[in-house]
């Protein structure tokens, strides 16, 4: 299974997560977001970029409560909440934001 992005084949698994996260770029993210029915705003990108930085440092996609805690610390109480994240990613921040960020499904995401 694969996406075609600007003539490049980008492999993904049966749930749509990228097989090789080095193939990620903003065009790939736009296609992934479109599949999820999400119109990417600056606020969406803020979360997606945060997830990519987290993965770069720790080599894992954070669980939702870890993401909330970390966002609360760096971006304040309003953005560090389940409610805010679900407003941006209605079908689950872990599932949708991680997918758009090109990360594997978070460990412990059932």
């Amino acid at each position: 299974m694969a996406y075609e992005v600007n003539g490049i084949t980008v492999e993904h698994d049966e749930e749509g997560y990228l097989s090789d996260l080095t193939q990620w770029n903003e065009d790939v993210a736009a296609i992934l977001a479109n599949d999820e029915g999400i119109d990417m705003t600056d606020e969406h990108w803020e979360v997606v970029n945060f997830l990519r930085e987290y993965y770069d440092e720790y080599q894992i996609a954070p669980a939702i409560r870890v993401l909330v805690k970390a966002l609360k610390k760096t971006m304040g109480k309003e953005k560090g909440s389940n409610k805010y994240l679900y407003t941006l990613f209605p079908y689950g921040p872990a599932k949708q934001a991680c997918k758009i960020a090109g990360l594997p499904k978070p460990t412990g995401c059932i």
Binding site: Y58, V66, A70
Partner: peptide, 14 residues
């Protein structure tokens, strides 16, 4: 192989 040792640094977040 994937170096998974950085993940130990995330345990505090958990």
């Amino acid at each position: 192989m994937k170096n998974f040792s950085p993940a130990f640094k995330a345990l505090g977040d958990y």
